[in-house]
């Protein structure tokens, strides 16, 4: 069903092919009346975009939904110019310009949340709202975070969701070779961008005051990778940001609490500029 909502596209960004999914135009765009124009751009986390697609497909009737694979993730090749999170952020500024996207509701989760922050501090002209979910990017100080690189693949699943039964269900799902290969590539590129400093940019905090657009920070109350306290700090650093907590939820609300997440994202869009 999800596959029918999204179509695959490619765009040349700085000489490298970026793969993105875009929702097919619905027959009655605007019937919902929520938005006159604009689009939703979703930036996936370290694990890739797949887990968020069912959630995102629910917006396809309201506005175009774009879901890129970051350079070096999913079906996007790892370009020679990709060395750090800033390179990825500039690539997305190119992407926004190339597609001439305006009034963009930028949504990023985890690593993609960090990326969304890096994009928005550089240029938010094309953005209508910013929503980050379980996002990293700021210095954790003494807040105890999980170590994604020390966790085994099984540990990762168990530590990223709050509900142990859900973790076991996910672990029981068979993985195709193609999925394993993609997971391996995603993990490599995650290390490239986030190994050191570990999931943050020491200079990002200095410029978060530039975020003057409607911003929401969403957090799973039981996030064990970047705990709630980390989310509170991040929200405090962004002027006027709204902080929303999803109870009984770990690091992946799109997997664990999709209904709550969709409701919060709708609020983000309603509060846009």
């Amino acid at each position: 069903m999800v596959e029918r909502v999204f179509e695959s596209h490619h765009l040349d960004v700085a000489g490298s092919r970026l793969h993105y999914r875009q929702s097919t135009p619905p027959g009655s765009l605007g019937a919902v009346g929520l938005l006159q124009r604009g689009s939703l751009l979703f930036l996936h986390g370290a694990g890739g975009a797949d887990s968020a697609l069912p959630c995102l497909s629910r917006f396809a009737a309201e506005l175009p939904v774009l879901v890129p694979d970051h350079p070096g993730f999913g079906q996007s090749p790892d370009p020679a110019w990709l060395d750090n999170i800033h390179d990825a952020a500039y690539a997305y500024l190119d992407f926004l310009e190339a597609l001439d996207l305006r009034n963009v509701h930028l949504v990023g989760t985890s690593l993609g949340g960090w990326l969304a922050l890096e994009i928005a501090v550089r240029n938010a002209d094309r953005l209508a709202s910013l929503t980050v979910i379980g996002a990293c990017g700021i210095r954790p100080g003494q807040i105890p975070t999980g170590d994604l690189f020390m966790w085994s693949p099984e540990d990762r699943v168990r530590n990223l969701v709050a509900d142990p039964a859900l973790a076991e269900r996910v672990l029981a799902l068979p993985q195709t070779e193609a999925q394993q290969e993609r997971a391996l590539r995603n993990h490599f590129t995650t290390a490239k961008l986030a190994w050191e400093p570990r999931f943050f940019d020491p200079h990002l905090e200095k410029w978060l005051h530039r975020l003057r657009l409607p911003t929401q920070v969403i957090w799973g109350a039981e996030d064990r990778l970047f705990p709630l306290e980390y989310g509170q700090r991040l929200a405090q650093l962004i002027p006027g940001a709204r902080f929303s907590v999803i109870e009984r939820c770990g690091h992946l609300p799109q997997v664990e609490r999709p209904d709550e997440l969709v409701a919060l994202l709708q609020q983000s869009m309603r509060n846009s500029r």
Binding site: M150, W151, S152, Q180, E181, L184, H187, F188, T190, W195
Partner: peptide, 21 residues
């Protein structure tokens, strides 16, 4: 040591990592 410690991502090429599992 655990495999995650012995072979962190990127330490060996993706090609060499395939057989590791």
């Amino acid at each position: 040591m655990p495999i995650e410690m012995l072979l962190p991502p990127g330490y060996s090429s993706i090609e060499s990592m395939r057989g590791i599992a």
